[in-house]
Write a protein that binds this DNA or RNA. Structure first.
Lengths: 253, 253
DNA sequence: CGGAGAGTTGAGAAACCTCAAAGCAGGTGG
DNA sequence: CCACCTGCTTTGAGGTTTCTCAACTCTCCG
């Protein structure tokens, strides 16, 4: 059981019925609205046939390595990070099942960041030339690929807003709410989950030091907004957390 | 003359010869490596046929408006910004001739940010459905479109690194070097140019207050790194500025 | 049981922000 | 063509937030 806080029964994956292709892959990102012919489904299944397992700490790819494929996470948890010469690192994202990694490498055919497994994970490899070829034949797939890339751009803009104009409390609240929302979308509890990353990694992602993360979590706990126990988090007062971020909808992180 | 600091003669646009299609458009982003047939060129020209002029301060599109087209800047200067409910604004980018705006809207068919002209500008509108259709027929165009989107993702990651782990001096140096590099790539002086944006806008982009921008520019000037006069900037010590950023290559902003 | 990595907490320092005042540039209307 | 007005910029002083450094505790694994 990878997800200790998995909800009782609940809709495991909300729109499972529309997940025609790649259902074995848990490719939420590729859940197409979807009217494919049997032959098209066969092609999609073939495209997503390469599966691979990674252990915690394994690199899915490294900055500088050659780009061949996009990767869809089936199970597990990843982080992506860019490294600065002088040792500074910046975590650029945390990825969950159904999300796609590797989009950054398309531009130069070379990966511009590292992708590291934060727990034992399974991925589905999508050879990019095959994906492009297939998307020339299937306009729906083409559009979907574009949407995925565009969504990544919007997500990044959200993080720029966060890094550029929010205070520590707001950043952390936004982060927790975002995790909450993404767990909920996958059928897990939106209020209790386990952090897969360290304080250091959260801090790097949010542009703060690990001590600030720790302090702010403690502060939230004192104020009954959350209950923290090491990597276990329970969100006690979602409305208050949302008010902190200054908006009712979840921010795309 | 839009660009007072335009270089004497110099290669106006470095690889002009490869700019088969859209040369009238100055679509640097669409400079394909490129072996198109006459018919394909005709199709590309048709795609890029819609031109439009904007005055300083005009909105190219607004957050919330419906997505129809991508926009290629032919001449002029734009900024993109996302607005927070509570009035906070975050500038997400400054765009120059040859760059593409509007990629964020593909994900939801609704624009997620505003695009505002910082000076009188001309744009070339690219209806997105036509672009997708054509890119299904022309793999080279398809790949190019993907690279453009991916490049935007890499750029955003660079800004996340900047916002997340750099100090004011470093951010501003990175910003100036980035402008320098982009002007140079367009045949303008890499060391003397006019800022099209206010201190406030630079600050918003870099996650700093306008006073900090002003102070840091003054500090750079005291140290003979640059010469500032209102919106006119001259970079006097590129090596030192690069050292400040902590890397020799230009950061993608 | 011991060690290493992760997390917490405190105190002081540094970076940046806020508020405020004054100077400057550029556009508009008389 | 000048005067004025508005918005942009500069600079200062003091306050806040976050960082740095350090000590200590906790947890997880072997």
């Amino acid at each position: 059981m990878q997800y200790p806080y998995k909800n009782k029964v609940q809709k495991a994956v909300s729109n499972a019925s529309t997940q025609i292709a790649c259902s074995s892959c848990n490719l939420r990102e590729f859940c197409l609205p979807a009217d494919f012919t049997a032959d098209e489904v066969r092609q999609l299944d073939q495209l997503t046939s390469i599966k691979r397992a990674y252990r915690r700490g394994d690199y899915l790819y490294r900055s500088g390595s050659k780009f061949e494929s996009l990767y869809a996470i089936r199970t597990g948890f990843f982080k992506t990070q860019v490294l600065h010469e002088d040792g500074r690192e910046q975590v650029t994202g945390f990825q969950m099942p159904g999300e796609i990694i590797g989009l950054d490498a398309i531009s130069t055919d070379i990966h511009s960041c590292d992708a590291v497994a934060l727990e034992d994970s399974e991925i589905c490899e999508l050879p990019f030339d095959k994906l492009e070829e297939l998307s020339r034949q299937l306009p729906t797939l083409q559009r979907h690929l574009h949407k995925i890339m565009s969504r990544e751009i919007v997500r990044d803009q959200g993080i720029m807003l966060l890094l550029g104009s929010m205070r520590a409390e707001e950043r952390l609240a936004a982060f927790l709410l975002n995790l909450s929302q993404r767990f909920a979308a996958r059928g897990y509890s939106s209020t209790a989950f386990r952090l897969r990353m360290t304080r250091q990694e959260i801090g790097s992602y949010l542009g703060l030091k690990l001590e600030t993360i720790s302090r702010t979590l403690s502060y939230f706990q004192e104020n009954k907004l959350i209950e923290v126990n090491n990597k276990s988090i329970e969100l006690l007062d979602l409305p208050h957390l949302r008010r902190l971020v200054g908006q009712e909808r979840g921010v795309p992180l």
